[in-house]
Design a protein around this nucleic acid. Sequence first.
DNA 1: ACTATCCCCTGACGGC
DNA 2: TGCCGTCAGGGGATAG
Length: 271
Amino acid sequence: MPELPEVETVVRALRREVRGARVEALRCHCAAVVADREAALRAALCEGPFVEFTRHGKYIFMVMAGGSTVAVHLRMTGQLFLAGRERPPDPHTHLEILLVDSRRKLVYRDVRKFGRFQVAPEGAEGFVRRKKLGPDALAVTPDELLGLFCRTRRCTKAVLLDQRVVAGLGNIYTDEALFRARVAPLRPARELSAREVRELCGSIREVLYAAIADRGTTISDYVGLEGTPGGFQFSLRVYGRQGQPCARCGTPITRTVAAGRGTWYCPVCQR
DNA sequence: ACTATCCCCTGACGGC
DNA sequence: TGCCGTCAGGGGATAG
């Protein structure tokens, strides 16, 4: 499931490979993945070349020369990759963005169809405000986290998954950051000391940068813009590792449910 | 205002 | 073998 490191990997590749390209045509095979009318998305994408690609949390923003912005969210199983024009669309291919002066196309594939392309008339910053997204997980400060942590009754994991608190963390990196900071996922957020919140904030940044360096995590569906999987799945210390020994103390990793999500942690190291 | 729950969608998996 | 029920999960909608 694409979280911040996977989205950042795609955005960096889009900048490198697609910035400056002009859209020749949009083929839509499934209306469900377009939040607006298909014609509105087509008008935005075809109005001029891609000027820039940006990201906030798990959202990708495609900024067009004409001033339009398109927000893309990959949700659970969305894939955005470049392919040769001759590649036939399979049943899970929902959008094809044909690029001018190139034999390539930008393909959107999504088994579960949870992902969305959405025109953002107010631009990226306005979109972030409208969705009430918190600061990006790579930019959030300990003070910002502390301010929200002491105002809630929820457990720490639930708070970290809340995109209005901090944007970009999903189930995998929340568990991994909590492990690195030695904080138990079910601890009420308001009980964390300022020192623990600082530690957690640092752990979030560390694990996200480490995952970006490995081009993200591929558990099942994620691929980068070139269609290749990430490599960070081999460096996960708790996520999905029920029964396997903790890397720090050897205690078997425990699985529980927090905030309705499968949650893995070390019952000894994490307090 | 805050929090929990349901829903979308499809593939994987377990039970019989 | 094959059928059917259950589960997974991000975020929006809805209900307490």
